[in-house]
């Protein structure tokens, strides 16, 4: 569906089902240079099981209009405005990578809107090296290729997909290429500049969950475990062999872990 947020048309995937704001809402927040499509196998799974799914494209991503937002804090405020537009009082928030930083900040700045927080392949901070930032600014195609490479684990590199006939790496490249030029650089800059993760985690009061990828090269497990500690999550889920893009690489394990969390929160 499409709604207006800050005067710009915003696309939100609802997992292929009509959305009912009075139901149990799951809000999926995508990572840097991604779109709703990186959560496609979560959105459809939960929407078909009675949850009300919202996977917005951040501005300049996927099918959403507008200029890319430039700070994690502003992205969190934008998400809060989106929930207001949709008359959603609160939601379970699932953040992947950069989406996890937004989730932390949303839980700190708009705590009443976050019923539960699922942090997937993310950390308290996501520093970005200058080489990648430079590529994202000046050679976006190369940055996309590098991130697609680093973002995938064994299954992605073997082109072994759970959906028959599909390809992780090439799909990932096309998904990222479909965003507005400059959106990736804005995202990575926002990640690089974000320093509020530890304070935000300390302020989080809702139930939290952490799902990590064992072979994550972009947000390594050790940083995810520090986040789990900060969020007082004693039982982080670590998916063996998975890369950073585990929502698409390992949807069965991710969905199982998310479902267990949602069913009690």
């Amino acid at each position: 569906m499409k709604v207006m947020v800050r005067g710009q048309e915003t696309f939100i995937s609802t997992g292929g089902r009509a959305f009912d704001a009075s139901g149990n809402v799951l809000l999926f927040l995508h990572g840097s240079g991604q779109s709703h499509l990186s959560f496609m196998l979560q959105g459809r799974f939960f929407a078909n099981r009675g949850w009300q799914v919202l996977t917005p494209n951040m501005p300049a991503h996927g099918l959403s209009e507008g200029a890319a937002l430039t700070s994690i804090e502003d992205m969190a405020d934008w998400v809060a405005e989106l929930l207001d537009v949709l008359n959603v009082a609160s939601a379970n928030v699932i953040g992947h990578s950069q989406g996890g930083l937004i989730g932390l900040e949303l839980a700190r700045r708009h705590s009443g809107k976050v019923k539960g927080l699922s942090q997937v392949a993310t950390a308290l901070a996501i520093p970005v090296n200058d080489a990648l930032l430079g590529m994202a600014e000046n050679k976006e195609v190369a940055a996309i290729a590098a991130m697609t490479d680093w973002g995938h684990g064994r299954d992605g590199h073997r082109h072994d997909h759970t959906m028959p006939g599909q390809d992780h790496m090439n799909y990932g490249k096309q998904l990222m290429a479909a965003n507005e030029t400059g959106a990736l650089f804005a995202d990575l800059t926002a990640c690089a500049n974000y320093a509020g993760g530890a304070d935000a985690a300390a302020a989080v009061t809702c139930p939290c969950q952490v799902i990590l990828a064992q072979k994550d090269k972009m947000t390594p497990v050790k940083f995810g475990l520090k986040m789990a500690q900060a969020l007082k999550v004693s039982d982080p889920v670590i998916i063996a062999g998975a890369g950073h893009m585990l929502p698409s690489e390992r949807p069965v394990e991710v969905n199982k872990a998310l479902r267990q969390f949602f069913e009690v929160n």
Binding site: H159, H161, P164, G165, Q166, D167, M169, N170
Partner: peptide, 14 residues
């Protein structure tokens, strides 16, 4: 299908 998609640089194959 997945092998052909990989060799051609496609996102999927039938």
């Amino acid at each position: 299908e997945q092998r052909l998609a990989a060799l051609e640089g496609g996102i999927g194959c039938v």
